[in-house]
Amino acid sequence: MEVMETSTNSPCLAALTCVLGDLSQADGSASFTHGNTSVLAATYGPCEVRMSKEILDQATVEVVCKPRVGLPNCADKYRERHIRDLFQATILVNLHPRSSVMIVLQERQDDGGLLATSINAACLALLDAGVSMKFLVAAVTALIDKDGNINLVPEEKPSDVEASASLTIVFNEKDLQVMGVTSSGKFSQEQYDRSVSLCRKATEHVFKFYRESMERKLSKSV
């Protein structure tokens, strides 16, 4: 709550929408939109793995990030690695030795917080495919501006203030502990702590949203 008081205008999470099982070929798919950032995610597997990528006692998680325009660049490769490491730890890989779980992410629109949106889309696609996971994960990006105010991205109305740092924090659903942090820019320990507590509150809503969308998908429509 102290987070709320320190910032002048209360930070809010932009609208979330998702469509599950949108693609017919993929085992699981989700098109996830957070504010104006939109990512399409598809998963295949657990299925046959290429010999070179085979791991004897666990499944290989492969992640492909497709940019909106042109060929994948360094940022996309970085995103790929980050998401792969995250889901290698999240999926129960030991259940499916010598197989592959593939996650393909297509950027459709980027208005900030692409990494967080990609992670959330991938998690929903895995959920749609019914891949066994230890827990669900959700990510939220926080921006710290020069005055030390913390805002969540993507915002409904992007402010003109330039941010001095951005933090993308991933939480698990089990105990809302931090799973991973990606940061850029300079920030203090105190600002970091405040961002974590703010993002934690925001991810609770994301988890609630996951549950809600899954319930809707599985509920009978009359």
């Binding site: 609208a15 979330l16 929408t17 998702c18 609630k208 949203f209 809600e212 969308s213």
Partner: peptide, 12 residues
């Protein structure tokens, strides 16, 4: 209140 809104943001 926000929980209610979450419902509305959901699909279907």
């Amino acid at each position: 209140g926000s929980e209610q809104e979450m419902v509305e943001a959901g699909p279907q």
